[in-house]
């Protein structure tokens, strides 16, 4: 039971990632594929963040353990645990995955913008954004010009 509880996060995050990937692979519509890709990338972010969570921790913004917030935070934790997991008497979650995912989110929106812009151009050049119809048009219509 406790094993399941400790890995439940990862299982759902894997489901989310694969959901996004499935939408990308199975859809023929360019916009839908970009949506799937965005979900996939976001979910990978959730995976990283899960790695960096520390039980009973707080956001990695330096906190004085004698302050009100610091005491409230430590009230639920055993001193032994705080001494082991904390830094200067306060337990923080790991900031490194946060930094990485900030970067990844930015990369995600950049990809989304470029992908959708290509989709718009495809619509203008072919009159459709369905992969099947585009392949059909490439087969039947000669003329390489946009």
């Amino acid at each position: 039971m406790s094993f399941l509880l400790g890995h439940f996060n990862y299982l759902i995050v894997v489901f989310l990632m694969m959901g996004g990937l499935w939408i990308t692979f199975s859809s023929r519509n360019y916009i839908k594929r970009m949506i799937g890709l965005a979900l996939f990338q976001t979910s990978v972010g959730l995976f990283y963040i899960s790695l960096g969570k520390v039980a009973g921790g707080t956001a990695a913004i330096v906190l004085d353990k004698t302050s009100k917030a610091g005491e409230a935070l430590n009230a639920h934790l055993s001193p032994d645990y705080v001494a082991r997991a904390g830094v200067d008497g306060v337990v923080y979650s790991n900031p490194l995955p946060h930094v990485l995912i900030l970067t990844a989110i930015v990369v995600g929106v950049a990809t989304l913008a470029v992908g959708l812009a290509i989709a718009v151009r495809v619509r203008e050049a072919y009159g459709t954004v369905e992969a099947g119809e585009i392949a059909e048009l490439d087969r039947t219509e000669a003329g390489p010009r946009a």
Binding site: G6, H7, V54, P95
Partner: peptide, 18 residues
């Protein structure tokens, strides 16, 4: 497990930053 403070990810570089 989720939230393990002694997971390899949480005891090395992340902790050094803190």
């Amino acid at each position: 497990s989720l939230g393990d403070p002694s997971a390899p990810a949480n005891i090395y570089v992340g902790r050094l930053y803190l």
